[in-house]
C-alpha cells in the first residue's frame, strides 16, 4: 500500500475510506425512503406506469442490500494510513490535518 512517490509527505492520509461510507450512507438512506414509499405510498396509478411492479419497494430493497455490502467492504478492508502508528510524528507540522476514521 505504501508508495515511494509520496515518501516526502508520509503523513498524508489516504482518504478513500470516507467515500465508501458516504456512498453507503446516502444509498442506504435512499433505500429506506423508497421502501417506505413502496409500502405506504403505492397506488394503482403508479402500478400502471411501472407495468404492475412495486418499483419503489424493489429498488429500495436493492439499494439497502448494496449499501450494506459497501459498508461491509469498508469495514473489512479499511484503507491503511501510510505512516506506521508507532513512529511518533516527526512530520507533524501542526497543520491540524485530521486522519480519517479517527
Amino acid at each position: 500500500m505504501s508508495s515511494s512517490n509520496s515518501s516526502a509527505r508520509s503523513e498524508h492520509a489516504a482518504g478513500a475510506f470516507d467515500v465508501r461510507n458516504v456512498i453507503a450512507a446516502l444509498i442506504g438512506f435512499y433505500g429506506v425512503v423508497l421502501v417506505l414509499m413502496g409500502l405506504f405510498g403505492n397506488s394503482p396509478e403508479e402500478q400502471e406506469r411501472t407495468g404492475d411492479v412495486n418499483a419503489n419497494l424493489w429498488a429500495g430493497l436493492a439499494m439497502l442490500v448494496f449499501a450494506a455490502a459497501f459498508a461491509l467492504w469498508s469495514r473489512l478492508r479499511p484503507i491503511v494510513v501510510e505512516a506506521p502508528p508507532d513512529r511518533q510524528d516527526p512530520e507533524d507540522d501542526g497543520s491540524g490535518r485530521v486522519a480519517p476514521g479517527h
Partner: peptide, 11 residues
C-alpha cells in the same frame, strides 16, 4: 415522466 413513481423520481 411516464414510468417512475414518486420516490424513484427523486432518485
Amino acid at each position: 415522466r411516464d414510468t417512475l413513481p414518486n420516490g424513484l423520481l427523486g432518485v
